[in-house]
Each structure stands twice: as C-alpha cells, then as structure tokens.
Design a protein around this nucleic acid. Structure first.
Length: 495
RNA sequence: GGGCCUAUCGUCCAGAGGCCUAGGACGUCACCCUUUCAAGGUGAAGACUCGGGUUCGAAUCCCGAUAGGCUCACCA
C-alpha cells in the first residue's frame, strides 16, 4: 500500500476520438474505488501522440464522463494542486526526468531513425526472429556517441533494462506475474520530438500526482515489467496495480473495437463508443449499472442496483481477471428496466429528442399520452420511433393488406371484420378505451374470431404496424374521425 | 512465432476444500394472465475444458495438455 495514505486513482485516456465503452468502464472502476475509500479521482489527458491528436476529442470525452455522472476531483475543468493535467503541458518535467535517468546510467540516448528501426524490424520478421530493438546504441563508445552529438543527430531516450534475471511484478487482480528480463526490450521513454512515451509519462505523472492505485486495461500487463523497472530506476514507491479484463466481442472473438464492429444475434451492429450509446437512447444510470456488473458484480444475486450502493461494496476485491464477451442482450434488458422505473412524465421528456431527431413534430399532449403506453414496450429511448412514431406523422401510411390479415383469416373475412368494426365504432360517442373495447369485443362471437385475430387486425389497420401501442388506447388518442378514416382506408385495401 | 494472462450453463456473474444433488440474471422454450403487441407471474432445458496429482474430501490447491485472449511501435 502506498505510504501517502490517501487513496488516489485516475483515468488517463488519450484524446484520439470518442470514448470507448470499455474506457468508460475503466473510468467507472477508478471512480468507484476512489469514492469507496473517500479518496480522489483524477482525470488526466494523455495527448503525447501528436500524430493521433484530435482537438475535438477532449470535449467529447468530458461530455461522456459527465453524462455517466463521473465527477473528477482534479483534472481539466476541475483544477487541482498537482497539475497541469494535460501531458503536453508537462513536457519539461518528462525531459528533466529522462535526463536524470541518462545522467544516472539508468537510460541512454539512441540515435537510430524510425526508418532504420523499421527496416531492422522487417529483417527480423523475414528471418523469423523475435522483433525488437537490438540495443546497438546502448554500447556506443564515447567517441561514437560524441560524434553523433556533434552532428546534432536526433535521439530517443531508452531505458537500460537488466539483461538477465527476472522481474517479479504484483497485480491486485492478476496476482504475481513474472517476466524474464531477457525477453524485455530497452523501451523508448522519450521520443525524438521531445514528447514522452506512455511509459515515462505514466510513471512520472502517477508519482507526482500521488496516485495510489493504477487501474487500467489488461492490455498494459505485458509492459508492466518495464514500468516496474522504471519505478525502481527512479527509486520511487510504486502504486498498487489493478489490471482490468478486456471486453471481447459478444461472440467472444477478439476485443471490441470499431475496426471490427461487433454484431448481435440479429445482425445489428453493436456500438463501441459511448457516444453511440447516448445517441441510441440508453440511460446513463443503466449503462453505469451494466458496466459495474461486467468485470465485477454487486453480489447477492442482485443485478439491478444503485451505483451509490455499489460504491459501498467496491473495494477492489472480486474484480474478474478473465476477459469476457460483451453481454449486449443484458444491457438492453437493464436499460428496459431503467426505462420502466421512470415516471411517465420523465419518460415523455426523454422521448421527445429521439422523435424529433427522426424528423417528427412532437405534440406535447399526445406525447404525454403515448409515453406510458410505450414504457413497457421499448428497450431504448430510440425504440419509440418505430413503436409510436406514427402518432406524430402528418400522413398515415397504411400497412400492406397481407399484414392486416390475421392467422386463419382471408381478405373477405378481414374486410367484414373491418366493416363491422367501423360501423360499431362510428356509433361510439364516449370515445374511450373502455367504451371502444366493450363495443367491439362482442364482435368476436358474432364473427367467430378470437381476441387475437380481431384486435390484431384492428391494430394493423389503425396504426399501420404489427407492433405498436395497444389498439384501443391508440384509437382514443388519435380520435374518432381519424380512427374511422384509417379503418376506411384499410377496408379499401381488401378489394 | 515469443512472452504473459485466463478457463463454471449459449452469454454475464455467484462460488475463496466439505454448506454444490453447483446459485442468480440475460437469452431460449412452455404455461398462466391479458385488450391483440409488450410488461408481469410460474416453470423447464442448460455448465464446473480434459488429464494427472495433493487431500479423508476439489468447481475450489498444484502440475501438464487443450482452448481462448492480450501483447510484442519514437500508439496509447
């Protein structure tokens, strides 16, 4: 345990695009852990790769974090004593410590160009040898070194790793992990452009920002021994590491990424970026609940929980070490559960945007009536468009005749049913769900139909859809004139 | 290919040597309810990867095999 005493965690994304759903989980775990112990959670921006920098990414990232309800105590927009919290603003610090390592014989300057290294790597691959830097410039003579310096050749700073023995690392999730030093490469710490690599920046920043626990994706585990050696080279106290499992595609093959977009059982593309989940109508509380429940679980067989209660239990133990498939179906179910927990008024408010985004003109009083009907029938907010978008369309689009015709029925019997219904409904003055039902229901005996057939065909005739809000409620909302008009149109389709 | 990690129902999790004839959830199927579509209720099918140890006793510990994953950049 870190002797600083207080628990400090951080989320350190690089601003190269939107936030990955797995990244949000990493942030969530760090946040929950800090909150559990009453410590601090920091946000740090790792913008050390100038080639991949995306100026809009920071704002998108902050948006996603705030949407999910993750508040950071130090970082961009929050300030803090130990900033700046953007790595590109800390360059002199990294350079200073890289030089310190060189001066203390823990690191050395290497003068190969990127092209030279690339060529070397290709040759190694061609000869089926392990790839990696061959340490040529670790053994430069003083004369050679002086000549390169005199030429003003650009250089990188590489960590001077032990050539033999083992590096024994410890991770609170993965346990003890050992590496043969012979397998390690003299990793670049400072690039020729003066920017640090992740490795240097991680150790320097987490030291000076007094991070007590590093929770990051397990992708970093292979470079843990390098970081371990770096901490020792500096003589600084190490934080506790917790490497979180990766989220794999729902089919379990490969990690989730936008490059190889995951697909669900129905063939729909599953979003990878948090931004897409926001756009698709997932609730932040549902996403957070879901994320907390993969890679970790609340326990006691409880699936739906308040995040504050989860924080009380989240002490860093019981984090799963194994990578796991992304359970999309469960996410949809959790989202549906959260939608059902909303008050109808709250839901109505949230439904407006997806409807308007679909190009519909939303009438507030209709929306208030539709929301409770949609509530048990949608899994994401966007589902409302397909389910009940027709309420807000100026033009009625009738369904195809064959979808109006129900099981064991034909055009003729359907037409009769529609005509009889039309006649009965035309006489209903108190145009309510109950009255409509009581008036139309007796038709089933008269026509020898069951509820499913009669109400089914009326649903399709009136809504133009096979899946919709319930039939009589829908009629009540659109009103008598419109209901009769639509029934007439459908009757016309039966010729 | 090298290094490292992991391994319980289709999927996500519970299980820290006897509470396990392995529990929950999603999904699937059946039935009930019902105003058709949903939601809700009840129930069913469904797993400890394999092989060796250790132990009186192993899903749980150890070893090996197998499988899957991550990673091998002047990217993070």
């Amino acid at each position: 345990m870190n002797s600083v005493g207080s628990i400090r965690t951080r989320f350190a994304p690089s601003p190269t695009g939107s936030l990955h759903i797995g990244g949000l989980r990493t942030a969530l775990f760090n946040w929950m852990f800090a909150r559990h112990f009453g410590g601090q959670f920091l946000l740090r921006i790792e913008d050390t790769d100038q080639t991949r920098f995306d100026p809009t990414a920071l704002q998108t990232l902050i948006e996603a974090m705030r949407w999910a309800g993750l508040h950071w105590d130090e970082g961009p927009e929050a300030g803090g004593e130990l900033g700046p919290y953007v790595q590109s603003e800390r360059l002199p610090l990294y350079q200073q410590w890289a030089n310190w390592l060189v001066d203390n014989d823990k690191a050395y300057r290497a003068y190969e160009t990127a092209e030279e290294l690339d060529r070397m790597r290709k040759e190694q691959q061609a000869r089926k040898q392990p790839t990696g830097y061959n340490r040529q410039h670790r053994y430069l003579t003083p004369d050679e070194r002086a000549r390169f310096e005199a030429e003003g050749r650009p250089y990188v700073v590489r960590l001077k790793l032990p050539l033999e023995g083992k590096t024994h690392c410890e991770d609170q999730v993965q346990g003890k992990v050992s590496f043969d030093n012979a397998d390690l490469r003299d990793t670049v710490l400072l690039k020729a452009d003066g920017f640090p690599t992740y490795h240097l920046a991680h150790v320097v920043d987490d030291h000076f920002m007094r991070i007590s626990h590093v929770m990051r994706a397990v992708e970093w585990l292979p470079s843990l021994p390098v970081h371990w050696q770096l901490w020792e080279a500096f003589g600084w106290e190490k934080p506790v590491y917790l490497h979180l499992p990766v989220m794999l595609n729902p089919n379990g093959k490969g990690k989730m990424s936008k490059r190889n977009p995951p697909v669900d059982a129905q063939g729909n593309v599953i979003p990878v970026m948090v931004h897409d989940y926001i756009k698709d109508g997932y609730l932040p509380e549902a996403i957070v609940n879901f994320l907390a429940n993969t890679g970790w679980s609340y326990g006691d067989d409880i699936e739906i929980f308040d995040i504050q209660d989860a924080i009380k239990r989240f002490d860093g133990s019981r984090i799963i070490a194994a990578s796991a498939a992304f359970p999309v179906d469960k996410l949809k179910w959790i989202n549906a559960e959260y939608i059902r927990k909303l008050t109808p008024e709250d839901l109505a408010g949230r439904l407006r945007k997806p409807l308007e985004d679909a190009g519909l003109t939303v009438d507030e009083s209709v929306l208030q009536q539709v929301a409770p009907l949609a509530q048990p029938r949608i899994r994401t907010l966007n589902d409302v468009v397909a389910l009940a978008g027709f309420f807000f369309k100026s033009e009625f689009t009738p369904a195809a005749a064959e979808s109006i015709i129900q099981k064991k029925m034909d055009t003729a019997s359907t037409k009769v049913a529609l005509q009889r219904s039309h006649a009965l409904i035309a006489d209903v003055d108190d145009f309510t769900t109950q009255a409509l039902h009581d008036t139309v229901q007796p038709l089933t005996t008269e026509l020898g139909l069951n509820n499913s057939q009669l109400f089914g065909l009326l649903r399709v005739a009136v809504t133009g859809q096979t899946i919709s809000t319930p039939t009589f409620e829908t009629m009540e909302i659109i009103g008598k004139d419109e209901t009769l008009r639509r029934l007439s149109i459908s009757i016309g389709l039966m010729d």
